[in-house]
Amino acid sequence: MTDLRSVYQIYVKATPERVWEAITSPDMTKDYYFDSLVESDWRPGSDYAYKNADRTFDLIVGKVLEADPPRRLVQTFSGRWEEGMLADPPTRVTWEIEQMGEACKLTLVHDQFESETMTYEQVNGGWSVILSSLKTLVETGKPMVVGEPAAEVAAS
């Protein structure tokens, strides 16, 4: 049996610095990471949290384990958006940014799950949405979720 680990990868046409900014700045996470605001000073040992839009609730909390901007960020990850997740031990998330020509290869590894915990079940699927939305935001400057298409709004 293999250790529980998930790996996600996407190519983003941007500089590593821009991708790092997308990962670490609340002005950007609000537009691709389920409307949340990430907050930390990003120093190893520091806390970080993804807060809901009005900053009344922490959706995810953890510690920065390693920070090597703009290449590598390792953090513990404790999801708090479902009550059943509170009992789960912290897991680990690693972001790797590798420049490939005029794009970056962004790899996200989520591991150190104790077992198929609620955290494991909850995050599967979520990372694909987040990474795909991050790419759209960084490459177009606009969030992916759009309202009515402009043409139809004009016609109605």
């Binding site: 680990r5 790996v7 996600y8 990868q9 996407i10 699927g125 694909s128 990474l131 795909s132």
Partner: peptide
């Protein structure tokens, strides 16, 4: 590892 991001 299965990478579901392209399907997303």
């Amino acid at each position: 590892y299965l990478n579901p991001v392209p399907i997303q």
